[in-house]
């Protein structure tokens, strides 16, 4: 379970970790927009360099970033196959008679892969350096303006933070139920389709029944401690912008501006 790094928080002590989550979320959005600009290779190189610098300031090992790319490898391969089949321009690289590979197919795949990598890098930088609770708090503030259109931002944030809080507990529970069922002869790896379905059912049913019980008890505990959905509450964690947050925001807008210039002006 420790192999999954995507979406995880790395408790390090760096200037990036101390930034305000609101600023980080906004900066992430700005950077994502920048990645979507058709700025060509120079634009991507600039973004990649800046992200690498941020990674270093955040004291995060590049191997960690690299590991978060792994889950999308399949996607890239899939993309490559589609592109090979559909792009028939550029230099002919390989001719197997039934299959021809043109340079543009590789080029296009690479181009999209780079975009994907940059996007993942931006989002993982956010999750690596921001505590889940701060993240939800940040989301709540960023979504704040939508409250007047009837969006229950506070409830959404509460749901996300409770979900985050219970992920490790539920993973542990899943392992335990899997072990119990393995002891009863369930094979989660092999077997015929019918057996596989049964294996999944034997995992899902207990998991749900425990989850409902948990939800019920949690609701009681929250109610007993005075939580009333929709009612105004104060917040223990107070967010405060500092000088660094403005530097981050200014920096990200600068990158966006530069990319726009590269894309549309030059």
């Amino acid at each position: 379970m420790n192999k999954i790094v995507f979406g995880k928080y790395l408790p390090l002590n760096s200037p990036i970790h101390h930034l305000d989550p609101r600023a980080k979320i906004l900066a992430m959005l700005v950077m994502l927009v920048a990645v979507f600009m058709p700025a060509g290779w120079y634009g991507y190189i600039v973004i990649a360099i800046i992200l690498s610098i941020v990674t270093m300031i955040a004291k995060i090992k590049f191997s960690y970033i690299y590991r978060s790319f792994k889950p999308m490898m399949m996607m890239v391969i899939f993309l490559l196959i589609i592109n090979i089949l559909s792009f028939k321009e550029g230099v002919l690289l390989l001719d197997l008679g039934f299959l021809t590979v043109y340079s543009n197919a590789l080029f296009q795949t690479f181009y999209i892969a780079v975009r994907l990598i940059l996007m993942i890098m931006i989002t993982t930088l956010l999750t690596f350096t921001t505590k889940p609770l701060d993240l939800t708090l940040g989301i709540e503030y960023v979504l704040g303006p939508f409250t007047r259109f009837g969006l229950p931002t506070h409830e959404i944030a509460m749901i996300i933070s409770i979900a985050l809080r219970f992920i490790p507990t539920i993973i542990e529970e899943t392992m335990r139920i899997m072990n119990s069922q393995k002891s009863r002869g369930v094979d989660f790896e092999e077997g015929k389709l019918k057996e596989k379905v049964m294996a999944i059912v034997s995992l899902i049913v207990p998991l749900f029944s425990v989850a409902f019980q948990r939800a019920d008890e949690l609701a009681n505990a929250m109610e007993a401690r005075g939580y009333v959905p929709g009612e105004e509450r104060t917040r223990y964690k107070q967010l405060k912008y500092t000088k660094n947050d403005f530097i981050l925001l200014a920096g990200s807008f600068l990158v966006l501006a530069m990319v726009i210039v590269l894309a549309f002006v030059i």
Partner: peptide, 20 residues
């Protein structure tokens, strides 16, 4: 390993969670 699991019955803590 499966044959072994039949001969060694493991009753987990809070084993009622395995019912489905």
């Amino acid at each position: 390993l499966k044959a072994l699991r039949q001969k060694v019955g493991l009753v987990f803590q809070f084993s009622e969670y395995q019912l489905f």
